[in-house]
Design a protein around this nucleic acid. Sequence first.
DNA 1: TTGTCAAAGAACAATCGTTGGTGATAGCCT
DNA 2: AGGCTATCACCAACGATTGTTCTTTGACAA
Lengths: 154, 154
Amino acid sequence: MRSPEELSALFRAQGRKITAQRQCIFRVLQGDESHPTAESIHAAAKAHMETISLKTVYQTLHELAAMGEIAALDLGTGMTRFDPNTEGVHHHLVCRGCGKVRDLHADFSTVTVPTGAEEGFDVGDAEVVFRGRCRDCRRARATAPRRAKATARA
Amino acid sequence: MRSPEELSALFRAQGRKITAQRQCIFRVLQGDESHPTAESIHAAAKAHMETISLKTVYQTLHELAAMGEIAALDLGTGMTRFDPNTEGVHHHLVCRGCGKVRDLHADFSTVTVPTGAEEGFDVGDAEVVFRGRCRDCRRARATAPRRAKATARA
DNA sequence: TTGTCAAAGAACAATCGTTGGTGATAGCCT
DNA sequence: AGGCTATCACCAACGATTGTTCTTTGACAA
Ligand SMILES: [Mn+2]
Ligand SMILES: [Mn+2]
Ligand SMILES: [Zn+2]
Ligand SMILES: [Zn+2]
C-alpha cells in the first residue's frame, strides 16, 4: 500500500473525493500488519474520528482493494481480512485458536502445480493457507480444559 | 464417507436414530463429487422426499462432519461446501467464475514448510486452494463481454 | 469567493447463509 | 406399547455485508 499522501493523490487523479474519513482510513491502514477486519479498522478509525461509519469503511476498503492498493483475503475466519502489504507475494498463517493472521514468506516456486491445460482448469494462483496454533494459543491450551469449544472469534 | 448402510450402523451404534430423512441424505451424498452446498443437498434430497427440511439437512451434515465422515470446507464461495471424499488428502480447484469445485490430487510433500517452532506457530496443516477458471467458464468468457459481473453463485 | 453538482457520508433497513427457538407430530428402538 | 428422539413447520435471530435514502461535503468553474 502506498502512503496516505500518495493514496490521496491517486484518489484525486481518479476523480474521487479526498475526505477526512478516507484519509483517516489511509492512516489507520498504514503499516498495519495485523490483517485487520473491516470492523477492527472501523474501531481504530473511530478512535480518531468518532462519527465515521462502518459503511464508509467498507466502501473505502473495497475501493482500495479494487485499485490493488490492499488485498481482501478470505482466510476462513468468518470475516474478510484486509492486507495493506501487497509488495511481495506471500502466504498466511492462520491461528485456529484466536484467528490471528501472520505473513509467511516462503518459496513455493518449485512446487509442481499441474498446468491448467491438462486438467482443463486455468489456474490463476495458488493460495496456501496454513492453519495451526499461534504461540499464545499454544500456551493457553497447555493449561486449558481439553475440549475447549472453538469460538473462532478474533 | 462410508456407504449409507455403514453410516446407518454407525448412527445406530451411537444411539442416533435411523430416519428416512437421514438415509435419504446418506444416499444423496454417496458418490457426490461436486462438493455440494447444504442447499443443493437439500434440493437433491427433496427430489426423493418432498417434505425434508433444510434444517434437518444442516443438522445431519454437521453430525456427519463431527463424525469425520464428510468434510465441511470453506473455500471462499460464500457457502460451506461438503465433501464426502475424506479418503485421501487432496486439494481443491475453485472456479472464480461459477464456483465449481474439483479435487486436485497433487503432491506437495516436498514443499519446505517452515517448522512451527522457528516461527512460534504450530503448523497443523497446509490448505492449498487454487483459484482460476474452469473450462466452461473459460469458454463462456471468450465470447462474453469483458467486464462480466462475477455472480459467484454456483 | 461563491455557486453548483456529483460524490461521499450517515443512518437505517435489508440481505444472505445459517442457527436458534417453539410446540406438535411422527417414528425409531427397546 | 411406550419413551425418547428426530423431524416438521414456523418464525425469529444472528453477524457480516450491502442497498436505500437523505443530507452533507469537496472539487472545480465562474
Ligand atoms: Mn499478509
Ligand atoms: Mn474434495
Ligand atoms: Zn492464536
Ligand atoms: Zn467455472
